[in-house]
Every structure is written in structure tokens, then in C-alpha cells.
Computed example of a mutant assay.
Amino acid sequence: MRPPVLLAVAHGSRDPRHAATVHALLRRARALRPGQRMETAFLDFDTASVPRVLERLAAAGAEEVVAVPLLLTRAFHAKADLPAVLREAGARLPRLSIRQAGVLGPSPLLTAALERRLWEAGLRPRDRRSTGLVLASAGSTDPEAIAVIADMARELRRTGWCAVRPAFASASPPRTDVAVRALRGDGCPRVAVAPLVIAPGRLPDRIAEGAREADVLAGVLGPAPELARLLLARYDEARAAVGHGPLAIPA
């Protein structure tokens, strides 16, 4: 029996760098698991919409799909937007079993991908104690999502960074530049900004703008090997979940 199709669902952006980076992440995942069918869809902006890709898969004879959100926290898109799109598609495509996997974060693999980007930007692991870190995410009005970012910042602090402060490009304070200045005030000799975002776009550009006074700006997570492994892990967890019906999508 063929394994379910892995459908990676990204947010989408008008910025062409966004889709290019998502496709690069999927290429990395395919290299880790040859033979696994993987497709990409987008919630907004891109023509490869989730309904259109699911219709194409159903027409090609696919029987099962696991939709893995390329989202880092359980905010609106993971809790409401994507489930609604999947439920509607499932009603129109009754022969296609659709399951939604969990979001990517939090995970030690996500933390490892963040630190990989920091080392690539010029820091070394031994620089942690003299470096304050801004964990900069896109932002959300969802308290659960904000709490996850705060928890990640605390976990990173325990690994030896001088100090760690969360920041947000939208919706919630503080902004990146405010967090950078706060770390200077904390007495950290060096300040680095780690974007907790998968692909370039308007909000990541806003993070970069706010990082101008920082000493180090890491790149977006993109096709980091750890992120590709995390994508596959969420797919495997959804496949292994017990008690699911033909349409296991969170309400």
C-alpha cells in the first residue's frame, strides 16, 4: 500500500523568494526520504492553492494525504484557516482521506536550525555567553503562539546565551529594534538576531530592518537540514496517530 502523500502547506507570499525557499526545503526533505511523494501548497497568494493541489492529487488517484503545516506555532492559520480549507476539500473529495499534522514548533530540531543559522552568520558556540539573542518571529495575536515563543526564548537562555528576548515583526510588542536595545541595556557585549521564520517576505524584511543595530543577523531557517527532518517527523507522527478517522482535522 502506498504511503500517504506528504502535502507541505506554507503560508504564501507575494514575494517570490518565499515560494522558492519553500520548494528548496521540500527538495531537502525529498533527499532525506527518496521515494516519498511530496507536494507543496500555499494558503495565500500562490496559484498552488491547497484546494487546487488536493483536487489534482485526487484526480491522479491519491487515496491519502497528510497535510503538514509549515507553520512554527499554533496560531490562526493552524487552528482555523487550514482546518477549514481541508474540511471543505474533504467534503468535495470524499475518496481522499485527509489528515492534518502538527505544526513544526516547538522542537529541539527547530532550536538546532536556529543555531545553525547563527553559526553560519559568524558566531561560534563559545560566543553564547557574551552574546544577547533576539528571537524574532513574525508575530501573532494568539496567546498560545506568543507563549510558545516565550518558552523557546527561555529554553535558549538555558543553553548559555548572555540573555534572550523574544521580538515580533507584527501584532505584538516588542519589535526587533526595541529588543536589541534592551539587550544592550542588559550589558550583553554583543547582540545577535535570530529570525524564527521559514522563508523571506515582508515580515522577515521588517525583522532585518529592526536588526540594523545588532552585531549579527542570522538568515531565515529556509532549507536547514534540521527543518527538513522536523517536517518528516511531523508527517510520521500524523501517520502513527491512533484513533483517527478518514478526515482527522482539528476542530
Rank of each mutant, 00 (worst) to 15 (best):
S97H: 11
A169P: 02
W119T: 10
P125Q: 07
T131L: 02
T141C: 02
G185P: 00
T111V: 14
S107P: 10
R190V: 06
P106W: 15
G105Q: 14
V191S: 00
R129L: 05
R128F: 00
A163N: 07
G185Y: 06
R184Y: 10
W119E: 09
V193Y: 04
P174G: 12
S130R: 10
G122L: 07
L96W: 09
M152A: 12
V134Q: 02
A91C: 09
F168K: 01
C188P: 00
Q100I: 09
D151T: 15
R128I: 01
P189F: 06
G105R: 10
T141H: 02
E155D: 14
V180K: 01
D177K: 02
A91L: 13
T141R: 07
A150M: 07
D151W: 12
R128T: 00
D177M: 04
A113S: 09
V178L: 07
D186L: 04
G105M: 13
L133M: 04
R158M: 12
V197D: 03
A136P: 00
R95P: 00
P143C: 03
L183Y: 09
G139I: 11
G187F: 05
L133Q: 03
E144R: 05
W161T: 10
T131V: 06
E155S: 11
S137V: 03
E155M: 07
L123D: 02
A145F: 01
G102E: 15
G90K: 11
R157F: 11
A112F: 09
R154W: 10
G132P: 00
S137D: 07
T176C: 08
